[in-house]
């Protein structure tokens, strides 16, 4: 492989990783607070893809993007309120099964509404324009994705560390019960977490599907799982960790495909997960939690 090819693949990988990172943050924040693998997050991301298709059919892109973002946030919060909130005091298995149920429902709903056939993803102006930097050539979206990701993560970190709601999120993630006793409105914090997660999923969805050009009802499930792996890799609960995890997975996967192991690229992801859980279960940036006997 020549240097240019390697750089080219790295760029593609970082771009894919950026989209993964945005979705992974949704997983990591929800897990941090509810200790729940939000299986439906991948389907939320898929639904955001369909929202874009329909929004673009009748509106210009500068209206469509906000519509998609709002639609995704509403869906995310509705899922929280209907499927997770009633199970707050139930065993963890129940709420996880509920998450699986929602993901199953959204897949079936998408199949029903939009059929199982892939639908073409609309092109946003400028985003698909091909740029040339030295010997590297790629569409704008490829260059843009990592930049957007890093900017959003930076802003999110500022919010988590500097604002009152950010402090509440950190407190709830640290100790659910105590923060409740301290007068934090747990449900508001949870809803806010879902709002942020869904917002990032919507952005991630636009960046991801613009590059892939089609959506089908199952196109959320595998990327969803991978993004969860990215979150674990970075250390569940850690936002910069999720971003780094996303980039690692994106680059790793792109190189697997480039080397001709495309069918094994998913396998690679899960082996990475298992290796991580076995050797450093807290992830790259996670904190250790001790269990009292």
């Amino acid at each position: 492989m020549s240097l240019v090819t390697i750089l080219q693949h790295t760029l593609t990988g970082v771009s894919l990783g950026g989209a993964y990172a945005l979705i992974a943050i949704g997983y990591t924040m929800v897990y941090g607070i509810l200790r729940l693998i939000n299986f439906a997050h991948g389907e939320l991301f898929m639904m955001a893809g369909y929202f874009m298709i329909f929004a673009m059919a009748s509106f210009p892109w500068y209206l469509s993007v906000p519509i998609v973002i709002i639609g995704t946030i509403v869906l995310g919060v509705v899922i929280e309120e209907l499927a997770y909130k009633p199970l707050r005091s139930a065993p963890r298995t129940s709420i996880m099964i509920s998450a699986i149920g929602v993901s199953y429902l959204l897949q079936n709903l998408a199949t029903y509404l939009f059929t199982a056939l892939p639908r073409g993803y609309p092109e946003l102006p400028y985003l698909k324009k091909v740029f040339q930097i030295g010997d590297l050539s790629s569409s704008l979206v490829t260059f843009l994705t990592p930049v957007i990701t890093i900017v959003l993560v930076f802003l999110l970190m500022q919010m988590i560390n500097q604002t009152k709601i950010g402090m509440a999120i950190r407190a709830v993630a640290k100790d659910f019960e105590t923060s409740q006793l301290m007068g934090i409105q747990i449900n508001n914090v949870i809803i806010f977490t879902f709002v942020i997660g869904s917002f990032l999923a919507a952005i991630g969805s636009i960046l991801y599907f613009t590059d892939r050009m089609s959506v089908n009802p199952f196109s959320g499930s595998l990327p969803g799982l991978k993004c969860f792996v990215a979150a674990v890799l970075g250390g569940i609960g850690s936002i910069p960790g999720a971003m780094v995890g996303g980039f690692i997975l994106g680059v790793g996967e792109t190189f697997m495909v480039a080397l001709g192991f495309s069918t094994f690229s998913d396998a690679f992801t899960f082996l990475l997960l298992v290796a991580m859980l076995l050797f450093k279960p807290t992830g790259l940036f996670g904190e250790k939690i001790a269990e009292k006997v």
């Binding site: 200790r35 729940l36 693998i37 963890r92 298995t93 996880m96 799982l225 969860f228 792996v229 674990v232 992801t269 899960f270 997960l273 298992v274 859980l277 279960p281």
Partner: peptide
Amino acid sequence: SDYLAIATLGF
């Protein structure tokens, strides 16, 4: 629990 679920799903 849930890590096991996701790992088995992965496999």
